[in-house]
């Protein structure tokens, strides 16, 4: 058997878990030992990829239990193995997989909780960049403020869900409240970002979410504020902007590394 075919068939056999007798016949080991020896590699592959998903989706694992998570993750691994050897990026497709996974349709909010966990993972590994400071903002001439396009720090992620994903996530933290106390009828907008090496997350008010989304869309400040004010009558730009600056959500105007 040529090397390419040998590798292709072993890959299929390892991921799908089926036995390939023609492949096993290539081995010098006694025939009754071959399946068991191959199983070491199958276990290694599954364990390695499962560990990556467990590390990225700890709350999803708590929500559905270890056994169910393992079965679900292995089904995902078999269908969507990583296609590059950079495993901190593996799992981006798990939320969409969960949304369509028949056995879990009774938990309609699960996929959005997974999206939140993936956003945390992405924030942890996002590029570093300097932050916009009040001092730097003050150097912008007032005549240019309306046309200013503020940029989000590369670690910032914005999520909107019809479910209380932040509350569900929070109830699975060591100091979180009970899951039973979460009102599943509440939609939430959540902000995730990294500051000083730590990933943070909090709820966003309607106006805050809209403003940050406009920044992400590269909208000039004056246009962004006009759009946001139309949606949130209580919106107060100075308050919101001051909080954005103190939390390090905006990128330096000069785009330099920090």
């Amino acid at each position: 058997m040529r090397l390419a075919e040998l590798q292709n068939r072993l890959c299929q056999s390892l991921l799908a878990g089926h036995s390939d007798q023609e492949w096993l016949a290539l081995l010098a080991d006694p025939s009754e030992q071959r399946e068991r020896r191959l199983a070491v590699y199958r276990n290694n592959v599954r364990h390695a990829l499962l560990s990556v998903l467990e590390a990225a989706f700890p709350v999803v694992q708590q929500l559905i239990g270890v056994e169910c998570f393992t079965a679900t993750a292995l089904a995902f691994v078999a269908r969507h193995p990583p296609h590059q050897p950079v495993l901190y990026q593996y799992g981006a497709d798990l939320p969409a997989f969960l949304a369509a996974f028949q056995p879990l349709t009774e938990l309609p909010w699960l996929a959005d909780v997974a999206r939140l966990e993936w956003a945390r993972n992405a924030a942890l590994f996002a590029a570093e960049q300097g932050r916009l400071t009040p001092g730097q903002l003050a150097t912008v001439p007032s005549t240019q403020l309306s046309e200013l396009r503020l940029k989000l720090h590369p670690s910032v992620r914005l999520l909107e869900s019809s479910w209380p994903i932040h509350a569900i996530w929070d109830s699975h933290q060591p100091d979180g409240g009970p899951l039973e106390a979460v009102d599943l009828g509440v939609a939430e907008a959540v902000l995730v970002w990294r500051l000083n090496g730590t990933v943070h997350q909090r709820l966003l008010a309607v106006g805050e979410f809209a403003l940050l989304a406009e920044f992400a869309a590269n909208r000039p400040l004056a246009d962004a504020v006009e759009i946001v004010a139309g949606r949130d009558f209580a919106f107060d730009l100075p308050t919101v902007l001051a909080r954005c600056l103190s939390e390090g959500l905006l990128a330096s105007l000069h785009g330099e590394d920090s």
Binding site: L3, A4, Q7, L10, N44, V45, L49, P82, H83, P85
Partner: peptide
């Protein structure tokens, strides 16, 4: 060892090779 299959799947393990001329 090898860990990337011909279709590009990365298997996250150090898989064995036959020690042939082709290899």
């Amino acid at each position: 060892a090898w860990s990337i299959a011909p279709d590009g799947a990365f298997l996250a393990d150090l898989l064995p090779l036959p020690y042939t001329r082709e290899t």
